[in-house]
């Protein structure tokens, strides 16, 4: 075993320090060390998107990031979306549109969709589907997810001009 490394980072706007082995993924660090289990592991090789988190100014699959690489970075996980007991508009839209069944993929979709709406306030269906192509859902058939994201876009950013 190699020497553990102290990592100082910011998670959901809070300074966080954790101790990890260099071989441990950011996903493992978040779930098993920091205790933020909202981020899910699916495939473990970057295909399914269920472990998506925001890292700095972009989204990544946290299974393909080393925990040590998070030093000095700012991370947003699904736990950072809601304000207290008030759900984020995307979370509410996913509930309203039944955009989930088993829910394993949902945290990843929410983080990815949040990044989409920051880049495109009113994404088209095609933009939405292309942006979310790195997130797999085996329950919903995607249609409800796309509708939920577009409804949240209106809720957050008003009707498209």
């Amino acid at each position: 075993m190699s020497v553990k490394v102290q990592v100082q980072t910011t998670i959901n706007n809070e300074p966080v320090e954790f101790l990890c082995e260099p071989r441990q993924s950011l996903l493992e660090c978040l779930r098993d060390i920091v205790g933020l289990t909202g981020t899910k592991e699916g495939c473990g090789d970057g295909n399914c998107g269920s472990c998506t988190v925001k890292l700095g100014d972009r989204i990544v699959t946290s299974c393909l990031v080393l925990g040590v690489e998070a030093a000095g970075e700012s991370i947003t996980t699904v736990e950072g979306l809601a304000h207290g007991s008030t759900l984020h508009p995307l979370q509410k839209a996913f509930l309203d549109h039944a955009a989930l069944q088993c829910g394993i993929c949902t945290p990843g979709f929410l983080i990815a969709a949040d990044a989409l709406l920051q880049k495109h306030p009113h994404p088209t269906e095609e933009q939405t589907r292309f942006w979310l192509s790195n997130n797999l859902c085996r329950c919903t058939g995607y249609d409800k997810i796309v509708r939920a994201v577009q409804a949240a876009a209106i809720e957050i950013n008003g009707a498209a001009q």
């Binding site: 972009r58 989204i59 990544v60 393909l64 790195n134």
Partner: peptide, 9 residues
């Protein structure tokens, strides 16, 4: 190349 998340890295 990959999807949005892969392109982030």
């Amino acid at each position: 190349i990959g999807g949005t998340q892969i392109q982030g890295r």
